[in-house]
């Protein structure tokens, strides 16, 4: 199966691994319908690390669950295109979808403490995905699990295989989750805030590990986070989400150097920078609240919090190309991307 997919790869090198166009996720709630994801576009190249950034409730987890096909049944998923390596995820039957899941696209969750089944040993849980998707012997699965446990930096792996999740710390469990995601050598791993629940020092280790493994195995990763600091460390490309939309996509370098959406700029100003942020000075925050996504959002979703909002912002902004591969959903994207103006902006603030 893996061989087959690699030949596919070589025949169509140009097409991205995953392309998403106008993805929408609607959830019925008590007071109506929650438009959790409101028509987002992005793509993931083979072997790249795409960071999906945004605050909680912006729809980034919903997006990842929609890609995996793990949304609750009552959720409605629509898109113009949801294509994973030639497979149309919107129309593929559930049976084939579950053949992809865990085999070619895997997921790492936020809460390592609860993401493993307390009733089974780690070895059992590691091996079952491989044995579900590939015809391998118990021994081969065991060896693969053992190899990966060692590879994710778990010592005494043989012994760990026989242990239960409650016998491991959070950091170790997240390493196990990473190993589990790698069991079938997937093409895409979706990591949903995998370091948020961990201590800061452990966070750094897990980030390094993920980055190393991603490069070693050539796996594409969608890394979901709310932490721009994390993005700066690992991302190839970034997609910034706000209120169910992708409002800016760019390479990591471009995004940090020339952010072209007021929200991205606001986020960057929230980060204290050593040497620049004076001790005792107040950190910046973005005033206002995220719009209620149960109601219909008219115009730019950010305009009620934006300090540069104009009359034009009452209309929905188009996705504008600021530079090659750098898109922003702001009417004033071109002016904003000009660093000179940005500095002037900061002076007036």
């Amino acid at each position: 199966m893996n061989n087959l997919s690699s030949t596919e790869r070589s025949t169509a090198p140009a097409s991205p691994l995953l392309s998403v166009k106008q993805l929408r996720v609607d959830l019925p709630v008590a007071k109506g319908t929650l438009h959790a994801v409101r028509g987002i576009d992005f793509h993931v190249e083979r072997g790249e690390m795409l960071c999906l950034v945004g605050e909680s409730g912006c729809g980034k987890s919903m997006t990842s669950l929609a890609l995996m096909g793990l949304l609750p049944r009552k959720a409605q998923v629509n898109a113009d295109c949801l294509n994973f390596d030639g497979v149309d995820l919107l129309t593929v039957p559930e049976r084939e979808r579950s053949n992809l899941r865990g085999a070619r696209m895997a997921m790492i969750f936020q809460e390592p403490m609860t993401a493993l089944n307390p009733a089974y040993t780690l070895g059992n849980q590691l091996c079952e995905a491989l044995r579900r998707h590939q015809q391998v012997s118990r021994k081969a699965a065991h060896d693969r699990a053992l190899y990966l446990l060692k590879r994710v930096g778990i010592s005494a792996a043989e012994e760990r295989m026989r242990q239960y999740p409650h016998q491991l710390s959070g950091g170790l469990r997240q390493r196990v989750m990473i190993a589990m995601a790698l069991m079938c050598e997937p093409d895409l791993i979706i990591a949903d805030e995998p370091t948020t629940a961990l201590d800061v020092t452990i966070q750094a280790q897990i980030l390094h590990l993920l980055r190393d493994l991603q490069q070693e195995f050539g796996t594409a990763v969608i890394f979901i986070t709310h932490d721009l600091g994390v993005v700066a460390r690992i991302a190839d490309r970034v997609a910034v989400m706000y209120a169910g939309e992708v409002i800016e996509t760019a390479s990591a370098q471009a995004l940090f150097q020339a952010p072209s959406h007021p929200y991205t700029q606001g986020l960057l100003r929230c980060i204290p920078t050593p040497g620049k942020t004076l001790p005792g000075s107040r950190l910046q925050a973005i005033p206002g609240v995220v719009p209620n996504l149960v109601e219909k959002v008219d115009g730019c979703a950010f305009c009620n919090r934006c300090d540069q909002a104009a009359e034009l912002c009452r209309t929905t902004p188009p996705l504008q190309t600021v530079a090659d591969g750098h898109l922003s959903r702001c009417h004033f994207a071109h002016q904003l991307s000009n660093p000179a103006q940005l500095n002037a902006q900061e002076v007036t603030l």
Partner: peptide, 26 residues
């Protein structure tokens, strides 16, 4: 509703395995 059920589904396990091995057992 537990996270480990979501994990099991994310591994592509069959519905029967998810319900009987992972859910019912607990």
């Amino acid at each position: 509703e537990a996270d480990y059920i979501r994990t099991a589904r994310a591994k592509g396990l069959r519905t029967g395995t998810v319900i009987f091995k992972h859910a019912l057992r607990n």
